[in-house]
Amino acid sequence: MRRSGWLGLYAVAYLIFLYAPIIILPLFAFNDSAVIAFPLSGFTLNWFRELTGIEAMHAALRNSLFIAVMTALFSTLLGIAAARAATRYNFPLKAGIMGLIMLPLVLPEIIVAVSLLVVAVQIFGMPLSAWTVIAAHTLICTPFCIAILNTAFQNLDPALEEAAVDLGETPQSTFRLITLPLVIPGIISSLLISFTISLDEFIIAFFLTGNEPTLPVYIWGLFRFPARIPVVMALGTILVAVSIILLAIAEYYRRRGLARAGQKDTGGFL
């Protein structure tokens, strides 16, 4: 281990840069002033209390939760299929097909939003609703799910499945008894990640929601009213706390999955 010196200092400074917004957010959520500026004037829980009374926000929250749950389910299911296919089987054009599936990861989000808007409204004549958002979010979440599930399936030793079949299990019961328990941590972290992405996503949702806004779209609307901004800060504090808890759980399951498969931990989500 070498001395880190300046580089270590830089790393800490960089982390402060990364965390600055998240550290400042709760300060204003509890600050007793309608103006978002320093110096802070006092402690209050009023903004949180005000949150409970806004009916439109509750509707937006319910809408967002529904979309996020459906997105998590669909994209994880698609992710399982793709990751299973990619790790176990070889088929023609495999690299090309997988590349195409991963493409939404690097496409500018506005391009995804605009093209889906055009496809949904002009070609299929679908009205904009929660379902158009779910379709779009599934599209952008699936690559993340595949990335997580790929590692889960790669760490799965095929010999274990073969052993189960040799010992007289049917393919169905092998999947249920052997494959599933070994990859379930990957599935849980994939569900949580796609849930979090969908809950926070704004750029696409803004184009596709129609008249039932999701929570981020609703927040965007609130930015226009300076008096409501402390409420947004309070709401944001709750959202950030929930995201961090969900991510910590996802990370915990990812590590447990690695430990179960007997692998060494090599790093983050992507």
Binding site: D200, P216, W220, G236, I244
Partner: peptide, 9 residues
């Protein structure tokens, strides 16, 4: 972590 928290906020 900061990347996964609400972008708008």
């Amino acid at each position: 972590i900061p990347f996964w928290t609400s972008y708008l906020i």
